[in-house]
Amino acid sequence: MTIELRIVLIGVSLLTLLFIAKKVRNSKVKLEDSIFWFCFAVVILLISIFPEVFYALSSFVGTDAPVHFVFLFFIFVLLIQIFQLSMRVSQSDTKIKELTQQLAIEKFERYRNDRNKNQDKHKE
């Protein structure tokens, strides 16, 4: 990895950390979700300061250049995260659907109950 790339990585990870801190501070994100990004930024920071780990891993896997392995590694990490996100979106969709259906049924039942009560009153 060139020194320029390392500086860029350090800058990016620090910015990410700052950004997450700001969002957590203003209660814009759930803590559970922020922890992934926190760890992610810390890992980038660590490998840009100590790239030797990735040199070793890169020569073990046999990629042309260590930087290729860095890209590959983060593509995998991000793929996993995207997959988990899309799972969460599906589940949220299902939950909203269920809530809406439940609410509609209860609204109708309440309306029917109210109408029956009113009719009883008229009869009296």
Binding site: A21, V24, R25, S27, L31, S34, I35, F38, C39
Partner: peptide
């Protein structure tokens, strides 16, 4: 562990 050591510190 991460939440207590790091995330709680930046909260208002």
């Amino acid at each position: 562990f991460v939440s207590i050591l790091f995330m709680q510190l930046v909260r208002k």
